[in-house]
């Protein structure tokens, strides 16, 4: 009596009842051309390192649905969670067999894990990127009520400079949420009161409850509160403004700089050593799905952003590794890494 089996039988029963839509198998010729003879003979696992229901999980599940459509392969989304992603990252870099049956769906927080927390057991280069999926720039949001109502990012930061330690900002320790605040402080001489939270979501909740003055989050996660006029985005940590937040300036605009770039970048990897033909086939399947207007529309509806430079990239591995190196520079500069 394997309970998973029971559940999957129940699930299959539901499907059989006719509520499932049968995907018409229209395998694109480019993908079919690259298909190795002996691959795949079983389902492919998409490993997601964060829990089911989160932004990455949703990204991966929508992606899997469309890759299945584009390739006809069976894909299983599996959440290997724990240690704020560390367990899944380590599994992909050291535990997963490089046989093409494991694809990791990651965010760039993996770089920080590799450089600061893996203690040399693995490196981010043990994971080879095969496709860029989408992004979310880290965004500062403020409340539409309370003492900082209606103020711009520049005004609030000015207050944090004039009266150091009075403006409370939600951070996630040891992550881009903290680094961005650090950069802003370094560039402007402001001093914030950093209130630690475990994740961006709880920080935004604290903002709604008036426990902090500034929270940092991602548009796809906080847009419901923007629509309801509860919070207002005040600055983006991206190179340029995004399509969703046309009226929100970037930190780089405000301070005439280039250093404030903290994006969540979601991408797919295979473990190092995956045979080249399988890797090419997996990449082609992902590319085909990521060109599917239906999938792009779903991502857009969720408020996910596509970084034009990464979408156009012809060598995604090299381009992402270049970004990882840039992050490394920050760690070295701030003394986190020697």
């Amino acid at each position: 009596m394997n309970p998973k089996k029971i559940l999957s039988i129940l699930g299959a029963g539901i499907m059989a009842l006719g509520f499932a839509c049968v995907a018409s198998a229209q395998i694109s010729p480019q993908v079919a051309k690259l298909k190795p003879k002996d691959f795949p003979t079983q389902s492919i696992e998409y490993t997601v390192v964060y829990p089911a229901g989160g932004a990455l999980d949703i990204t991966a599940r929508l992606l899997a649905k469309h890759v299945e459509k584009a390739t006809g392969d069976k894909i299983l989304v599996n959440n290997r969670t724990g240690g704020a992603g560390m367990v899944g990252h380590t599994y992909l870099a050291t535990g997963a067999k490089p046989d093409g049956y494991t694809v990791g769906v990651l965010v760039n927080l993996v770089w920080g894990d590799a450089m600061l927390r893996a203690n040399g057991r693995w490196a981010y280069t043990d994971l080879e990127p095969i496709a860029y999926i989408n992004s979310d720039p880290l965004t500062w949001v403020a409340s539409t009520e309370g003492p900082y109502k209606g103020m711009s990012a520049k005004q609030i930061i000015q207050i944090a400079r004039d009266k150091p330690g009075t403006v409370r900002v939600a951070i996630v320790p040891g992550s881009m949420w903290e680094y961005l605040v650090e950069q802003v402080e370094g560039a402007t001489g402001a001093k914030f009161l950093r209130v630690p939270f475990q994740g961006g979501g709880p920080g935004v909740t604290a903002l709604l409850g008036g426990s902090v003055d500034v929270a940092q989050g991602f548009y796809s996660e906080f847009r419901g509160y923007v629509d309801a006029n509860k919070i207002v985005p005040i600055a983006l940590a991206s190179e340029q403004r995004t399509t969703y937040l046309k009226d929100t300036p970037t930190f780089n605009e405000i301070y005439g700089s280039k250093q404030f770039v903290w994006n969540i970048i979601r991408f797919a990897v295979v473990p190092k050593g995956t045979p080249a033909d399988r890797k090419a086939y997996l990449a082609a399947g992902l590319q085909a799905a990521l060109k599917d207007p239906e999938l792009l529309a779903e991502y857009q509806k969720l408020g996910m952003y596509f970084d034009p430079a990464l979408v156009k990239s012809t060598n995604i591995g090299a381009d992402l590794n270049a970004l990882a190196l840039k992050e490394r520079e920050f760690y070295v500069k701030t003394g986190r890494l020697k």
């Binding site: 829990p51 089911a52 229901g53 989160g54 999980d57 949703i58 599940r61 929508l62 979501g201 909740t205 709604l208 847009r223 419901g224 509160y225 629509d227 309801a228 509860k230 779903e298 509806k301 969720l302």
Partner: peptide
Amino acid sequence: GIPGNAVTALLLGALVIQGIQPGPM
């Protein structure tokens, strides 16, 4: 749209996948 625990977080995800934006509205 605030999930209090892992299970409600998953319910939130289910809403989002359906294209529904949870939140005050």
